[in-house]
Structures are given as C-alpha cells and as structure tokens.
C-alpha cells in the first residue's frame, strides 16, 4: 500500500519540470562560474582539496538542500488546498505521509547531485569509486536535518512565503557553511562548524582519505537531526490541533 502511494508521490514530484529547472540550473550555473576559473587550484586555501571538488560539494549542498527542504515544505501547499485534511479522513498514517515526503525530497535531490557530479568530473574532479560512494553517503546523512526542517516549514510557513523560506534557508545556510567560499578559520569557522550545512560541504574531505567527517561532524549532524525532528513533530501536532 505504502509503495504505490509513494510511487505516485514521486511521479508527481518529477513531473514538476520547473522545479528542476531551478533546483538544478541555479547551483550548476554558480558552480560553473566559480569553479571554472579555479579549475587549476589543487589545494584550496591549504585544505588539501581541489577547487573543483570543493565547490562541487559546496554547490551540491545548495542544490540538494533545496530539494530536500522543498520535499517537506510541499506539505504547506497540501494543507492550504485541504488535501492533508482529506488524508486525515483516510487510513493513511501521518508517519507514512511524512516518510513519503522525505523519500521524495531525497530522490529529487539526486538530480542536482548527479548534475553537479557530472559538472565536477568535466572540470577534472577525480575520485575513486569508494570516495564517490563515501561522499554521497555523507551527503545523504547530512541532509537528514534538512528533511526534518522541510517538514517543519511545511507546517509553519504559508504558501506565499514558501519560496523565500526555502530559498532563503538554503542560501543562507549554504553560505554560512562555506559552500560559496571556504571558511577555514576565525569566528565564521566556529559558527560554521556548528551548522549542519558545513558538514554537507565537508563531505568533499573524503578526498583526503579517511572517513570524511570528524567526531564533531557526526555529533553536530545527529544533534540537528534530533532537534529539528522534534520541532517538526511539534509543528505538526500544533497544526492538527488547530485544524
């Protein structure tokens, strides 16, 4: 039952061409603008990571974050048109509904991810299969807090503020996380390390060998996932009680 429901939801999401035009086009264009002139930089700011790789992960962070946030935030539209209310009068369980939104958000995130990987390869990014896999895995884990944040926004933000909420959140968090330029030291670095977006960008550090994230990274991502997950549940409960 859940499978065909989810399949229909995914089909819907992928039919929204305009969404992908922006979710893919935007980070891809920025990547090409930023990384192409720096394609010869093999050690960006002493990080040991090449510029094409660093910005590839950075702008993949922007793109995937956007998609995953939008996955949950679409709940806002369905609340507005009365669809979630209709669903409450069906056997569909809320957790299935949310899981479907998150899965769909993740699958749509694979599109900008693939686009940026391809662009990265064309600019000389060269990783082993296990490094590609490790980086992708870190990305998927690092997106968890944003999946929860998307569901939360879906319950807190009205349809007319949805675009700015998603665009603003992903823009700001990717900027502070170092997606647009590296934040290697100082106050900005301290702030950045506490943000989940920083660790998404840092998934490119698989190129240095080793696991990619430090213990701090895992801790920050886990904490944000739990915190935003709880906030999303709270937002959902508050919303249903009011309805």
């Amino acid at each position: 039952m859940t499978l065909s429901y989810t399949r229909a939801e995914i089909r819907r999401a992928f039919r929204n061409r305009r969404f992908f035009l922006f979710a893919v086009g935007f980070p891809l264009a920025i990547y090409l603008l930023v990384a192409t002139p720096n394609r010869g930089v093999h050690d960006l700011d002493g990080s040991g990571i090449s510029a094409p790789l660093y910005f590839m992960a950075g702008l993949a962070t922007l793109g995937t974050m956007n998609s995953v946030l939008a996955g949950g935030a679409r709940i806002s539209i369905e609340r507005t048109i009365g669809w979630t209310r209709h669903l409450r009068a069906t056997p569909l369980r809320p957790r299935t509904y949310f899981a479907t939104k998150v899965v769909t958000g993740y699958l749509t995130a694979l599109v900008p991810l693939a686009a940026l990987y391809s662009a990265g390869i064309s600019l000389g990014v060269d990783l082993s299969v296990s490094q590609w896999a490790g980086m992708t895995a870190l990305m998927l884990v690092g997106l968890l807090p944003f999946a929860a944040l998307g569901v939360m926004l879906g319950h807190l933000v009205g349809v007319d503020a949805l675009g700015p909420a998603i665009g603003g959140t992903s823009g700001l968090l990717s900027f502070l996380g170092g997606a647009w330029f590296p934040v290697a030291s100082g106050f900005m670095h301290d702030v950045a390390q506490a943000l989940p977006s920083y660790w998404l960008v840092q998934s490119s550090s698989v190129a240095l060998g080793g696991g990619g994230w430090s213990a701090t990274g895992w801790l920050v991502v886990t904490a944000w996932t739990l915190l935003l997950g709880a906030a999303a549940v709270f937002a959902y409960r508050r919303d249903t009680e009011r309805a």
Partner: peptide, 13 residues
C-alpha cells in the same frame, strides 16, 4: 469514505 466541503486536488497526476 469522505468528501469534505473544501479541498482541491493535488496536481501533476
């Protein structure tokens, strides 16, 4: 089975 008073349909299906 329920048909509420207001409610649009979700799109793209």
């Amino acid at each position: 089975g329920v048909m509420l008073q207001t409610g649009e349909l979700i799109r793209d299906l």
